[in-house]
Write a protein that binds this DNA or RNA. Structure first.
Lengths: 233, 233
DNA sequence: CAATGTGAATGTATTCACAGCT
DNA sequence: AGCTGTGAATACATTCACATTG
């Protein structure tokens, strides 16, 4: 029904940065903020901040800045974290356990309302406030408890199966901790957080920042095809 | 010394995707791959794949494709994961513990060689193969064990202090799991993995994909400044 | 001949520069 | 006076189209 003047992807990824910084400042008793300061705290330019916030609404007061409380309310409303997203965890290994004892969800607008695993030995166990449930109760609980997003923390080989079951049960988003690319049908969305990938990206950035990237053209190029650039151009 | 035809950021973030898929296919006994297939598995276009791989070297054979083994070798060489990055974990709470029992590091080219915490009650405890060490041994061990990157998994209030100590000890990259923006001096790089931020991004994507983003112009706009667009334009 | 590698065209994001508001 | 909001300019990334290659 709503055909939105859509929010650019890079802006969307920065929304969570803004929220965190704004909440920090609100706690410290600040009540307004200028784009310049906000940007400075986050490593962004003032223009960037204004463009981003401009995509989201008209909340700034020329000559003054933004009212922090209003801006937070707006961003939480936009992301739905003001109403609380109910989420399930699927897969209770090391990562799943760490997730279930993560105490910051509530404050950030999320609530874990169920934990599932397919290992019969684990079912019935308690972890924190949660009792581990069998996968065949997924559909039932998704509806009963209004679960809309799920966190997958299974071994990679089980991740796609878990995702299929979740999609089938009517979930609309998956945060995937398993090192496996999930296929999900639109409009379901799946995003991945993979430790190995994050480390590898860091490693590459370190090499680029310190200038010790290996020479690109040479290594292993002895029998490499199309080696020497053709004469022309 | 090396002034590189630098690798674009988006390409760098995809390198880990390529590696994972290529390794999966190598395991399955495949030995060459065309850009089209590789892209298809990863949700990218064939052109995109070729441009990315083109930034990295000239490894393709026209009419044939790429030799998977060579490509993996190239990407691992590029990222330094062929030589193994030695890493330290700082902060052994729930997340730190999950990291220390993560068994995939070796295969991905990383090795945790030390774990630190500043809680006297934890020091000396063993977690998996590791004994928890006090922070004041950081500098010594960074040098002794050739540690170049660190994973920070402390509470947010302690994260910056940990980062400062790490930078001071000579580390060159930090992967930060604490929900806190770290300041580090160049050329040190710090990247963040924050569960709350990932969830919030997922939530936004879900709302966009399902078209239930709240109307941007309206909410809370009653006393909003610069509300009605000026006449002209 | 089927696939790569890459200039040129297109699309998207960031930055600049300034009009307009409080 | 000082800041926001935003068109216009620039920078960057992706896609197209095709010459080149094994």
């Amino acid at each position: 029904m709503t055909s939105n003047p859509r929010i650019p992807r890079p802006t969307a990824t920065r929304v969570s940065l803004y929220l965190r910084e704004l909440e920090r400042r609100l706690e410290q008793g600040e009540s307004t903020i200028r784009s310049r300061e906000l940007g400075h705290s986050l490593g962004l330019t003032d223009t960037q901040v204004r463009k981003d916030l401009g995509h989201i609404g008209h909340l700034g007061f020329p000559g003054v800045g933004y009212r922090i409380e209003d801006l937070i309310a707006r961003l939480r409303f936009l992301s739905g974290t003001d109403r609380g997203w109910r989420a399930a965890v699927v897969g209770v290994g090391n990562v799943g356990r760490a997730l279930l004892s993560y105490d910051r969800f509530e404050a950030e607008g999320f609530r874990i309302v169920a934990a599932f695993d397919d290992d019969p030995a684990k079912i019935g166990q308690r972890v924190g406030d949660h009792q581990i449930l069998p996968m065949d109760r997924l559909r039932e609980l998704v509806h009963e408890r209004g679960i809309r997003i799920a966190i997958v923390a299974t071994p990679p080989a089980a991740a796609q199966e878990a995702a299929d079951a979740l999609v089938d049960a009517g979930i609309s988003g998956i945060l995937n901790f398993a090192p496996w690319r999930l296929e999900v049908p639109p409009p379901v969305v799946a995003t991945e957080v993979d430790l190995g990938m994050s480390l590898l990206q860091l490693a590459l950035q370190v090499r680029m920042a310190t200038g010790d990237l290996p020479e690109l053209a040479e290594h292993g190029a002895k029998d490499s095809p199309m080696r020497a650039r053709s004469i022309r151009r």
